[in-house]
């Protein structure tokens, strides 16, 4: 399991986010095995799962914080750290890997001056090597939020980033 980083970024969740979370939890707490959907919904609202949010979930579902923490740190999709505005995910599944995805990830790390798994200081971009997203016919593939880019090469990375640099 990768090292767990507890974020130093101060929690700035709003009252309306908390209200929305509690509303969702009112439903998920009654589902059998509801802890998973609870965490999934919470991450949809906040973008990540800081201790403050985990505490609310533990409270609403009447389970220990340790149990919630244990699940939040088991699954790779759950993150305890805030993500960038644009989340770049380079697929490093087998088909993409044999076609050079490692080089693409390295190039992006170089251009953004961050390591894979981190976020730029201005909070704009986060970079991740991700599990296979099932577009193997278009390898190598990367996504930036919901945008999917297929058949990309190292040389395309500046162009891809420029689509998001303006705002």
């Amino acid at each position: 399991m990768a090292k767990i980083k507890l974020t130093k970024v101060p929690f700035n969740g709003t009252a309306s986010q908390e209200a929305e979370l509690r509303k969702k939890l009112a439903v998920t707490k009654n589902m059998s095995g509801g802890l998973m959907p609870s965490l999934q919904q919470a991450q949809e609202i906040y973008g990540y799962l800081p201790i403050e949010v985990q505490t609310i979930i533990a409270d609403e579902l009447n389970v220990s914080l340790e149990e919630v923490f244990g699940i939040a740190t088991f699954y790779s999709q759950f993150t305890l750290n805030p993500q960038g505005k644009y989340q770049i995910a380079v697929c490093i599944g087998t088909a993409c890997y044999v076609k050079g995805a490692g080089d693409i990830l390295d190039r992006l790390a170089e251009l953004l001056k961050i390591k894979s798994g981190d976020c730029t200081e201005d909070g704009k971009f986060s970079l991740l090597g991700t599990r296979c997203i099932g577009c193997c016919g278009l390898a190598p593939v990367l996504t930036v939020n919901a945008d999917v880019y297929g058949k990309v090469g190292k040389a395309d990375m500046e162009r891809v980033l420029s689509n998001y640099k303006k705002d």
């Binding site: 599944g93 087998t94 088909a95 599990r131 296979c132 099932g134 577009c135 193997c136 016919g137």
Partner: peptide, 11 residues
């Protein structure tokens, strides 16, 4: 769950 990298038939 189709976790095998390189598999996308279930998708």
């Amino acid at each position: 769950d189709e976790g095998d990298p390189g598999a996308f038939m279930d998708r």
